[in-house]
Simulated scan of single mutants.
Amino acid sequence: MRQISFFAVLFFFFGALNAQDQQSVNVGDELIITSPISHNYKYIDVPRKNFIIKRGGIANLKSLENRKAIVKDISTEGDEVVVTLVPANGGKFFNVYRELKADLADALDNGELQKVEG
Rank of each mutant, 00 (worst) to 15 (best):
7 F>N: 15
7 F>S: 14
12 F>V: 14
15 G>I: 08
18 N>M: 14
21 D>I: 09
24 S>Q: 13
24 S>C: 12
26 N>F: 09
27 V>C: 12
28 G>S: 11
31 L>S: 03
35 S>C: 11
35 S>E: 13
36 P>G: 05
36 P>F: 05
40 N>W: 01
42 K>C: 01
43 Y>I: 02
45 D>Q: 10
45 D>E: 07
46 V>G: 01
47 P>N: 03
48 R>T: 05
50 N>I: 06
50 N>L: 10
51 F>R: 15
52 I>E: 00
54 K>V: 02
56 G>C: 07
58 I>S: 11
61 L>N: 08
62 K>R: 09
64 L>E: 00
64 L>F: 00
64 L>Y: 00
68 K>A: 11
69 A>P: 01
71 V>Y: 02
73 D>G: 06
76 T>S: 15
79 D>Y: 01
83 V>S: 10
84 T>Y: 04
85 L>R: 05
86 V>F: 01
87 P>F: 06
88 A>V: 06
89 N>I: 06
93 F>E: 00
93 F>Y: 04
103 D>E: 05
103 D>L: 06
104 L>S: 02
107 A>T: 04
107 A>N: 09
107 A>C: 11
109 D>M: 13
109 D>P: 04
110 N>D: 06
112 E>H: 02
115 K>H: 07
117 E>M: 14
117 E>S: 13
